[in-house]
Design a protein around this nucleic acid. Structure first.
Lengths: 188, 188
DNA sequence: GTTTAATTTCAATAGTTACTGAAACTTCTA
DNA sequence: TAGAAGTTTCAGTAACTATTGAAATTAAAC
């Protein structure tokens, strides 16, 4: 499989950026390729397009599956497996945020909670604990925010974001956007 | 300088996590150390506490300064420079987000804008461009959101986040939190 | 059950990034 | 302006991470 120059430039760029988002170059390239391909691709097609070994592709696919970013596509009568990206851009972005939260923030929050419960041994540690408490609160807030954004239905979220990014604007949109939800259920 | 076990556990953990946030282990450790130290530290104190070379510390300080996360503190009559973290946890978190946006999202946005303007050569590229447009819109939205959050005054932002993380809650807080601002100025 | 096609695994190695430490440089002091 | 105290730079090397490719494994077809 031969990539067009347009597609290649995107795939290569995404490979470089990929490492920033938690996966390596090849995995980034593979994901980019699957995202912009209309039809599912076989592992061999991916390896050929990216000029990497078949084994590397196998490991990359495993990684992308662990992030739930791709799904398998079985063609009857064809022994090969085909792969395509799973869901919309929005859903995939959410998967990435969620997975990173689990891997990066949760262990830190656990550590911080433990340290904060310890008794400070001296003035130095009293100050340190205050700082750690602030960091903990910040991380917890970000963690909660992102998980709540993820629980919103994608339409609402998309509309919300497209309409305007200022918090002021968001607040003004209350009446138009927020549908009755859990809070309503609690009413007798 | 000898770290207490409490402080050491935090510093080491932050070193491991640091790489996820865009800097290497030593830089992560250095930053953690400066954040929980009440008093400014000299480069030698940092090197000793972390058991790394003086040269490594020098490079790390340069890196942290480029992120604007630390500031120098000059003691009259002392030839050494001292360093401490710059600003509140909130402000530093914002610096990190802002810097990462510049380094990671902006180049991608630029690339995508370029590709989207090209004429598609075939059906494959028509589909690809649609996907790239979606990715572009998503990145741009995130970019705008984060930059607007950064422009909010830290008190408002902090209160907002502490009070509750749900967008629903945020919206309900409108009357309590949002102070008259630019919109008011426009009124005759 | 044998053959064949495809996938996965993993030891070896290539490639990349981080760290050290000595030399070069800068700045202050006398 | 010489010397001391401190900082920065960077070539060499250590440590880590990614990739290959051949062997082992799995799955389908006959």
């Amino acid at each position: 499989m031969q990539m067009t120059p347009m597609i290649e430039s995107f795939v290569m760029h995404f490979g470089e950026m990929g490492s920033r988002w938690g996966f390596n170059r090849t995995v980034g390239q593979m994901f980019a390729l699957l995202v912009i391909s209309e039809n599912p691709l076989s592992a061999n097609q991916i390896a050929e397009a990216l000029s990497v070994s078949r084994g590397n592709v196998s490991m990359g696919l495993k990684e992308l599956q662990s992030w739930q970013l791709i799904k398998q596509h079985h063609v009857p009568g064809d022994r090969k497996e085909y792969y395509q990206s799973a869901g919309t851009i929005w859903e995939m972005a959410n998967k990435v945020f969620e997975e990173r939260r689990k891997r990066e923030m949760d262990p830190t929050l656990t550590l911080l909670r433990g340290i904060i419960l310890e008794s400070p041994e001296n003035q130095e540690e009293v100050f340190a604990q205050q700082r750690l408490q602030e960091i903990h609160d910040l991380l917890e807030t970000i963690s909660k925010w992102t998980s709540e954004l993820q629980q919103m239905n994608p339409d609402t979220l998309g509309t919300l974001m497209k309409l305007g990014s200022g918090v002021g604007k968001v607040i003004d949109m209350k009446n138009k956007l927020i549908k009755p939800s859990k809070k309503l259920e609690k009413k007798p």
